[in-house]
Amino acid sequence: MLNQWFLIGALALVTYLSRVIGLEFMSRWKMNPTLRLYFNYVPIAIIAALLVKQIVLPFHGGLTLSIPVLLSCIGTAVMILLTKRFLPSVIVGVVIGVLFRYFFS
């Protein structure tokens, strides 16, 4: 619990600093366009990495593919491409994974 409050405080601080530093100081510099692009690609890389870490899990020193998680992701991806709606897509993805678990494992 104390750890959670510490994390919240630290996250709040680093996030606010990134906002206020950009606003107050970075505006005076002409930022390199390459650096701009780099900053924009970072979230894509992190989200993709987190996704893979959830689909492929460590297992007895090796790696194992979680089929329900994979199906859940594919279902969500297809749904959001078709409907462009976040929450229904997530729910459909979860339901697909749950159904697979229920019937096949």
Partner: peptide, 14 residues
Amino acid sequence: LAFPATFAALLVPG
């Protein structure tokens, strides 16, 4: 499963 599904929904449209 809401974790991976959420991240798939965040990633794919972009």
